[in-house]
Amino acid sequence: MNHEHDLPPFADPAHEREWQAQERALQAERQGLDPADGDALVRRYRLLARSLRQPMPEALPADFARQMADRVAVAPAGRQATDPRFESTLAGVLAVALLVAGCVMLADYGSAWLPAFRDLLPASGAPATGWLLALGGCLGASWLLGLWQRHTPGRVA
Protein backbone atom coordinates (compact mmCIF):
# COMPACT_ATOMS: atom_id res chain seq x y z
CA MET A 1 0.00 0.00 0.00
CA ASN A 2 1.21 3.59 0.57
CA HIS A 3 3.93 2.67 3.08
CA GLU A 4 6.71 4.50 1.28
CA HIS A 5 5.21 7.96 1.90
CA ASP A 6 3.24 7.09 5.07
CA LEU A 7 -0.05 7.96 3.45
CA PRO A 8 -3.24 6.26 4.60
CA PRO A 9 -4.72 3.81 2.11
CA PHE A 10 -7.22 5.20 -0.36
CA ALA A 11 -10.90 4.47 0.27
CA ASP A 12 -11.46 3.94 -3.44
CA PRO A 13 -9.59 0.97 -4.97
CA ALA A 14 -9.37 2.77 -8.32
CA HIS A 15 -7.48 5.66 -6.71
CA GLU A 16 -5.19 3.17 -4.99
CA ARG A 17 -4.41 1.49 -8.35
CA GLU A 18 -3.65 4.87 -9.93
CA TRP A 19 -1.35 5.80 -7.06
CA GLN A 20 0.46 2.49 -7.23
CA ALA A 21 0.90 2.83 -11.02
CA GLN A 22 2.38 6.30 -10.54
CA GLU A 23 4.76 5.03 -7.87
CA ARG A 24 5.85 2.07 -10.01
CA ALA A 25 6.45 4.41 -12.95
CA LEU A 26 8.60 6.75 -10.86
CA GLN A 27 10.57 3.84 -9.44
CA ALA A 28 11.15 2.38 -12.93
CA GLU A 29 12.32 5.75 -14.22
CA ARG A 30 14.72 6.17 -11.29
CA GLN A 31 16.14 2.69 -11.88
CA GLY A 32 16.40 3.26 -15.64
CA LEU A 33 14.45 0.12 -16.54
CA ASP A 34 13.31 -0.65 -20.09
CA PRO A 35 10.49 1.77 -21.05
CA ALA A 36 8.56 -1.07 -22.72
CA ASP A 37 8.24 -2.99 -19.43
CA GLY A 38 5.11 -2.72 -17.32
CA ASP A 39 1.48 -2.29 -18.17
CA ALA A 40 0.09 0.51 -20.34
CA LEU A 41 -0.82 2.73 -17.37
CA VAL A 42 2.71 2.53 -15.94
CA ARG A 43 4.19 3.28 -19.38
CA ARG A 44 2.03 6.42 -19.68
CA TYR A 45 3.08 7.61 -16.23
CA ARG A 46 6.72 6.90 -17.11
CA LEU A 47 6.36 9.05 -20.21
CA LEU A 48 4.85 11.82 -18.09
CA ALA A 49 7.62 11.55 -15.47
CA ARG A 50 10.28 11.61 -18.20
CA SER A 51 8.82 14.71 -19.84
CA LEU A 52 8.53 16.50 -16.49
CA ARG A 53 12.22 15.83 -15.80
CA GLN A 54 13.28 17.58 -19.00
CA PRO A 55 14.41 21.17 -18.45
CA MET A 56 12.30 23.96 -19.88
CA PRO A 57 13.76 26.08 -22.67
CA GLU A 58 15.74 28.85 -21.02
CA ALA A 59 15.13 31.67 -23.45
CA LEU A 60 12.58 32.83 -25.95
CA PRO A 61 13.49 32.54 -29.63
CA ALA A 62 15.57 35.41 -31.00
CA ASP A 63 12.72 36.55 -33.25
CA PHE A 64 9.97 36.20 -30.64
CA ALA A 65 8.93 39.88 -30.81
CA ARG A 66 8.69 39.78 -34.61
CA GLN A 67 6.60 36.58 -34.47
CA MET A 68 4.20 38.15 -31.99
CA ALA A 69 3.97 41.35 -34.04
CA ASP A 70 3.18 39.30 -37.15
CA ARG A 71 0.44 37.40 -35.30
CA VAL A 72 -1.11 40.59 -34.01
CA ALA A 73 -0.96 42.22 -37.44
CA VAL A 74 -2.90 39.41 -39.12
CA ALA A 75 -5.44 39.03 -36.28
CA PRO A 76 -8.79 40.63 -37.08
CA ALA A 77 -9.48 43.84 -35.25
CA GLY A 78 -11.74 43.09 -32.32
CA ARG A 79 -14.85 45.15 -31.98
CA GLN A 80 -15.96 46.54 -28.67
CA ALA A 81 -17.75 43.83 -26.71
CA THR A 82 -20.54 45.97 -25.28
CA ASP A 83 -22.07 49.36 -25.93
CA PRO A 84 -21.19 51.85 -23.15
CA ARG A 85 -24.63 53.45 -23.49
CA PHE A 86 -26.26 50.10 -22.74
CA GLU A 87 -24.10 49.66 -19.63
CA SER A 88 -24.86 53.14 -18.31
CA THR A 89 -28.58 52.70 -19.03
CA LEU A 90 -28.57 49.36 -17.26
CA ALA A 91 -26.71 50.86 -14.29
CA GLY A 92 -29.27 53.66 -14.11
CA VAL A 93 -32.17 51.20 -14.24
CA LEU A 94 -30.59 49.11 -11.49
CA ALA A 95 -30.00 52.20 -9.33
CA VAL A 96 -33.64 53.26 -9.73
CA ALA A 97 -34.79 49.71 -8.89
CA LEU A 98 -32.63 49.76 -5.76
CA LEU A 99 -34.01 53.16 -4.77
CA VAL A 100 -37.61 51.99 -5.26
CA ALA A 101 -36.92 48.82 -3.25
CA GLY A 102 -35.41 50.93 -0.47
CA CYS A 103 -38.44 53.22 -0.42
CA VAL A 104 -40.80 50.23 -0.26
CA MET A 105 -38.82 48.75 2.64
CA LEU A 106 -38.80 52.12 4.42
CA ALA A 107 -42.57 52.44 4.00
CA ASP A 108 -43.22 48.89 5.23
CA TYR A 109 -40.72 48.56 8.06
CA GLY A 110 -39.64 52.14 8.80
CA SER A 111 -41.99 52.62 11.72
CA ALA A 112 -40.26 49.75 13.52
CA TRP A 113 -36.64 50.85 13.21
CA LEU A 114 -36.69 54.61 12.58
CA PRO A 115 -37.22 55.43 16.30
CA ALA A 116 -34.01 53.54 17.13
CA PHE A 117 -32.06 55.72 14.69
CA ARG A 118 -33.74 58.87 15.98
CA ASP A 119 -32.48 58.01 19.48
CA LEU A 120 -28.91 57.83 18.15
CA LEU A 121 -28.96 61.43 16.90
CA PRO A 122 -27.89 64.13 19.34
CA ALA A 123 -30.49 66.49 20.76
CA SER A 124 -30.99 69.76 18.88
CA GLY A 125 -29.30 71.86 21.62
CA ALA A 126 -26.29 69.53 22.10
CA PRO A 127 -22.79 70.79 21.13
CA ALA A 128 -22.29 67.82 18.79
CA THR A 129 -25.17 69.01 16.60
CA GLY A 130 -23.18 72.04 15.44
CA TRP A 131 -20.17 69.90 14.61
CA LEU A 132 -22.30 67.43 12.65
CA LEU A 133 -23.83 70.29 10.67
CA ALA A 134 -20.36 71.73 10.00
CA LEU A 135 -19.11 68.32 8.82
CA GLY A 136 -22.10 67.91 6.53
CA GLY A 137 -21.60 71.43 5.14
CA CYS A 138 -17.90 70.76 4.43
CA LEU A 139 -18.64 67.45 2.73
CA GLY A 140 -21.38 69.02 0.62
CA ALA A 141 -19.19 71.99 -0.35
CA SER A 142 -16.31 69.67 -1.32
CA TRP A 143 -18.62 67.56 -3.46
CA LEU A 144 -20.09 70.63 -5.20
CA LEU A 145 -16.60 72.09 -5.78
CA GLY A 146 -15.48 68.82 -7.35
CA LEU A 147 -18.50 68.83 -9.68
CA TRP A 148 -17.85 72.45 -10.62
CA GLN A 149 -14.16 71.77 -11.38
CA ARG A 150 -15.00 68.80 -13.60
CA HIS A 151 -17.45 70.82 -15.65
CA THR A 152 -15.36 74.00 -15.97
CA PRO A 153 -14.36 74.46 -19.65
CA GLY A 154 -10.65 74.44 -20.41
CA ARG A 155 -9.80 72.64 -17.19
CA VAL A 156 -7.79 69.44 -17.47
CA ALA A 157 -8.92 66.87 -14.92
Rank of each mutant, 00 (worst) to 15 (best):
M56V: 07
P55Y: 03
M56G: 04
L41S: 14
A62C: 08
P76G: 04
A75L: 08
P35Y: 13
P35S: 11
L52I: 03
L33V: 05
G38A: 05
A77G: 06
G78K: 15
R43H: 00
A75P: 13
R79L: 11
A65S: 10
R50K: 15
A69K: 09
L52D: 07
A75Q: 10
D63C: 00
R44G: 07
R46V: 09
A49S: 05
A62R: 11
D37E: 15
L60C: 08
L52E: 12
R71F: 14
A62Y: 08
P76I: 03
A36V: 06
Y45A: 00
L47S: 02
R50V: 06
G32Q: 01
L41G: 09
R79D: 12
E58F: 05
M56N: 09
R71M: 09
A81R: 12
A49D: 03
P76C: 06
D63K: 00
A69G: 12
L48Y: 06
D39A: 09
L60P: 09
D37Y: 01
L41C: 10
P61M: 06
Y45G: 00
D39H: 03
Q67I: 06
V74Q: 15
P55G: 04
M68A: 05
A73D: 07
R46I: 04
A75G: 07
Q80G: 04
Y45Q: 06
R71C: 15
